[in-house]
Nucleic acid binder design. Structure first.
Lengths: 338, 338
DNA sequence: CAGCTGAAGTTGTACGTATAACCCCGTCCG
DNA sequence: CGGACGGGGTTATACGTACAACTTCAGCTG
């Protein structure tokens, strides 16, 4: 681990500037007004510059008893949505001199080998996205401040929660499809026991159920294109009259639905309408472009970090869901008259 | 920043177990063989468990003079490719008790407000992916160990480099298309001054140029679907006989090519062959599925971290490019006989 | 039984920083 | 002219850990 010549410390800077180490700390910490003369301050800054001095973060954190670092726990970073959440969170964090370190889920990296590795970075707080709380308690020390994204506000154990307005998103989708005249639905559902997906299923069922002569079939699948393809094809081939619209829990599932439709010779949107959820890059890559609910993932991350910072300051984080918006593209149309 | 009751320290554990702080450090650091009795060791571990003790990383890092943390610099995390690079790097890092912290490019987060924020975490080394070195020098202290991914081995200023075998990837593509019989090519090129993209252009030109009666047109575009669409449409409408194959620097650009083809009423692959590069999730989402070069991004990240660890140990990192593989799907076919 | 050895600890210190508490000296006021 | 005051610093200390150097004592050997 030999780092050639050891890095200069504040003491080295002090020596070079002909002052005490404390003075260096004062100047560089911007707390020198009325304590150090303008001239010496300038000398110190120059010396720091010349030596290429960088403060030792470990020492600073130790002294201050805080790390200015938050942990973001996400299921999978390769999902564009969570990458955007990270970027939003990191942007706000940077504004406050905080860093964000990632823990891409127990699956992605494996559980920490020993109990200490889980505390890899010194942490001030945790933002957990779409996570079951069991996995969390291992990471969370005893009482690390916690903000939960995308989780049931009802049982978040006192942790602050930030959510997208999923409910409204589902309402917008169903209203759109009902207005177009669809009556027979297939719900291509993510096979994950998670709050958001529960909400989606529930809202879809009740909302559609309020109209007359409607029917909702459900097919569960892991969130992969192949899984969705198989599930959709299977469900579309099922008995009884074929659904005219597929509501997918996720854009990726919609891609599977597209492929199933193609296999069965159904044209989208003429023979079959398909909707997604998330509005990932995928949505506009496929043909026809996907009608889906746009989620502002970056804003989601920003709000999460804002909430965490509030908690750290002892304030109550702001309430309120983040609005979402249905984006109507080419994958939905009125059902073919039978 | 009040964290209710302060966390227990090794001294608290010592008190609880009736030993000295040093003994705690020994036991928990697994260096106690022949220094502490089995019985006391057990008592210490129990006490640590009971108190929920987590060592203070800042203090440990300060003591050891190392952070066990690497910085990964990537252009944009929302690009699935770089997210995968991260996961690979993080996996290897975790195995060695290292953490990985991200710096998603000057663009993504903005330059660090003050020179110190750039050193947010205490770092042992840097892995920079697809970056110009200017942006780096600001972050890199004076002599932080550096590994460069996806950069010109010839002018990496002594830093270790790890690369995918881009050259071979381009050869595989061109050989595939030449064998199919294509003679007129459009190169949809990323408008970025970066090593990889230079290599791609160069290899395409020379390789295709070696065959008789061939022609390569180039259209530059930013890496966005809309940009690629515009560039491709424009180029396809250009004067002279129309290209029969579009070679794209990137899968995302291929999506633009698909859209251009659709607009012009050209069917893929019958009227027009299209190839990508990267093999992102996009590649199998679009129809027909894209013939592209598969890059193992995770392995790329793993190799990058392995190289960095080697440098940190004072060893010479392993050489050799990572092999890539052409995946032939449905977007390429022999050109229509004219 | 003096001296040595090894087990089982303990004491002490250093890492680099931030800051509280102190100090010195020139000025100004009463 | 004594003392209060403030500008411009300095000295000393603590944060929590890891580890080198020391201590203590029981058991053994010659």
């Amino acid at each position: 681990m030999a780092r050639g010549s050891t890095r200069p410390t504040s003491r080295d800077v002090a020596r070079a500037a002909g002052v005490s180490q404390a003075a260096v700390s004062l100047v560089l910490g911007d707390k020198w007004r009325g304590r150090v003369s303008e001239a010496t301050a300038a000398r110190v800054r120059q010396a720091a510059q010349d030596l290429g001095y960088r403060p030792n973060l470990a020492a600073r954190n130790l002294r201050l008893g805080q790390a200015r670092t938050a942990l973001l726990v996400v299921p999978a970073l390769t999902n564009e949505f969570f990458a955007a959440v990270y970027e939003g969170a990191a942007r706000i964090a940077a504004k406050h001199g905080f860093g964000v370190v990632l823990y891409p889920s127990p699956e992605g990296i494996g559980p920490a080998p020993d109990p200490f590795a889980s505390a890899r970075a010194a942490l001030d707080g945790i933002i957990a996205s779409s996570m079951a709380s069991e996995a969390l308690t291992e990471i969370r020390g005893d009482d690390l401040p916690l903000v939960m994204l995308d989780s049931d506000p009802a049982d978040s154990l006192g942790a602050a929660t930030v959510n997208l307005d999923i409910t409204d998103g589902m309402h917008q989708i169903t209203d759109h499809l009902l207005t177009l005249g669809h009556r027979r639905y297939l719900h291509l559902a993510a096979d994950i026991d998670s709050w958001t997906f529960h909400v989606r299923a529930r809202e879809l069922a009740t909302r559609v159920g309020q109209a007359a002569d409607t029917e909702v079939r459900t097919a569960k699948t892991p969130i992969t294109i192949e899984g969705a393809l198989a599930a959709a094809e299977n469900a579309l081939n099922g008995p009884g009259p074929r659904p005219t619209a597929i509501v997918c829990d996720d854009d990726k599932l919609a891609v599977g639905a597209y492929k199933a439709a193609r296999r069965l010779g159904l044209r989208i949107p003429n023979d079959l309408s398909v909707t997604g959820f998330d509005d990932l890059a995928l949505a506009t890559a496929i043909e026809p472009e996907l009608t889906t609910v746009h989620l502002d993932a970056e804003l989601f991350g920003e709000r999460g970090m804002t909430a965490l910072l509030a908690v750290l300051e002892g304030e109550t984080p702001p309430e309120g869901n983040i609005p979402v918006e249905l984006v109507v593209r080419g994958s939905t149309a009125p059902p073919r008259p039978s």
